[in-house]
Amino acid sequence: AKKKMVVPGPGEHPLQYNYTFWYSRRTPGRPASTQSYEQNIKQIGGFASVEQFWRFYSHMIRPGDLTGHSDFHLFKEGIKPMWEDDANKMGGKWIIRLRKGLASRCWENLILAMLGEQFMVGEEICGAVVSVRFQEDIISIWNKTASDQATSGRIRDTLRRVLNLPPNTIMEYKTHTDSIKRP
């Protein structure tokens, strides 16, 4: 079934792109390999304006309050948060590992920068993910062209600016083809 296009409401502030929120959670007690990633990932909904974003986000649980093995994904409308999507298959991501307690603030700063077009890399951004794990949390931002070093450099510099991270934070760039080979 074709999805209805989301449009800004009257008087609302449109975003440069429409976005979709997704959520995934690994069922406890079963190894990941027996489950299809696509089956576990659920669409929460889409938005086209600043005000529509807040209506979703204000009702969502903060990443720091999630338990277990869970992820929030925020991707441009039409891009699935998976390596196999056409927009992602030549791409890569910046990964930042966070000690417990930082995820909620960092995730909010990351997605506000993405929605507000702070990265200045044209059409390159695909989406962002926050992954809640047992001992640490991980945030990442995905872009289309892993081989484009000017773009990945600019994304890294913007991340440093908007996330206000401790100076010793390690940032790692990983291409999706690497992730497929070595998950």
């Binding site: 409401g9 008087g11 609302e12 502030h13 449109p14 975003l15 440069q16 600043v50 005000e51 529509q52 974003f53 807040w54 209506r55 204000s58 700063n109 506000l112 920068a113 929605l115 507000g116 077009e117 702070q118 908007v162």
Partner: peptide, 21 residues
């Protein structure tokens, strides 16, 4: 064309606007 750019403060200020409720 022109890009729609918003800084963090602008976005946060829209959080409690009546339209967003």
């Amino acid at each position: 064309g022109t890009r729609i750019i918003y800084d963090r403060k602008f976005l946060l200020d829209r959080r409690n606007s009546p339209i967003a409720q």
